[in-house]
């Protein structure tokens, strides 16, 4: 226990602490942060028929190093109404779907949080279970239900309520329905987590002070669950904006969503620079929602 040994140990321990921090930090920097830099770089280059299909930004000549930065991809996005419509359509559909999720999910989360203790775990598992199965298959389920000779139309025809099938597949309605269905558990989970922490005596205090239950909800419960509402909404809204599978399977020719457009630019047109520019603009649009989510999440982690 003499001083030299402990000092040696400390010197040996200090850098190790650094290593423990470095491992996750380096992994995420390399495979999460750095890729965005590359996307940005490629979005500033020109498409070319080559492998990989874009021109180099930095040209190392015999004596000079020239930097060719091109904003043409971004200008192209602005000029073509298809892209603007796709961004606008994505935001609109994601917004409506998020709102619908909130309106359905909030009462569900509220009922779960107020349920008897031994029921809560069962209800939570019931809500989360679908999200553990398969996203793709849950979207696929609606194809059989919504199509012209699907379950709903067949039932309605058989009941004689309609003469010809209602077109539900390949519409924006189907896309919104699909998003609500797929993302509902992610709305309920943070809301439930927030509402269970709500102190029941607060509600009792409010009613003791003469507040009616709906008023109590508006003045006490709702403001206190703001964090859960933000987290749940962002968990639905942000991925929904970039959604590809749902518009591809349930949407129609009128459904233009940016995730689908990006996919097609990349895989069908093999225009990597335009796809990169599309991703950068989408990221810029989502920066505020992502920051909002991050702020909520880090506050949650601090508590």
């Amino acid at each position: 226990m003499s001083a030299p040994i402990s000092q040696r140990l400390q010197r040996w321990f200090r850098p190790r602490r650094g290593w423990v921090i470095a491992v996750p930090l380096l992994w995420l920097t390399l495979f999460f942060l750095l890729p965005f830099g590359i996307v940005l770089k490629i979005s500033l280059s020109e498409a070319a028929i080559a492998i990989p299909p874009y021109s180099a930004i930095v040209n190392v000549g015999a004596e000079t190093v020239s930097l060719v930065v091109s904003f043409s991809n971004y200008l192209f996005l602005m000029s073509d109404s298809l892209y603007v419509a796709a961004y606008w359509g994505s935001l609109k559909i994601a917004f409506v779907a998020t709102l619908a999720c909130l309106l359905i999910g909030y009462p569900m989360a509220y009922a779960m949080a107020r349920a008897p203790a031994h029921w809560q775990l069962v209800l939570l598992l019931l809500v989360m279970l679908p999200s553990w199965t398969s996203f793709l298959i849950r979207v696929y389920a609606w194809m059989g239900i919504l199509s012209n000779n699907g379950l709903i139309n067949n039932t309605l025809l058989w009941l004689g309520l309609i003469d010809s099938p209602i077109r539900m597949m390949n519409t924006n309605f189907a896309v919104i329905l699909g998003i609500v269905y797929a993302y509902l558990p992610f709305m309920i989970l943070p809301l439930y987590a927030n509402l269970t922490r709500l102190d029941g005596s607060l509600l009792e205090a409010a009613s003791d002070l003469g507040s009616r239950s709906f008023n109590t909800f508006l003045k006490v419960t709702l403001p206190l669950s703001k964090g859960g509402i933000i987290a749940g909404s962002m968990l639905v809204f942000i991925p929904a904006v970039g959604e590809y599978v749902i518009p591809e399977l349930l949407g129609g020719p009128n459904t233009v969503m940016i995730g689908k457009v990006l996919w097609e630019e990349f895989f069908n047109n093999r225009d990597w620079p335009v796809a990169s520019a599309l991703a950068m603009v989408m990221l810029a649009l989502l920066l505020i929602p992502i920051a909002l989510f991050h702020r909520y999440q880090s506050r949650e982690l601090k508590e």
Binding site: M1, S2, A3, S6, Q7, L9, Q10, F13
Partner: peptide, 13 residues
């Protein structure tokens, strides 16, 4: 009599 102010907890008696 020995200075332990820098000794880590797991080496203190």
């Amino acid at each position: 009599g020995k200075d332990i102010s820098r000794t880590p907890p797991y080496e203190r008696a």
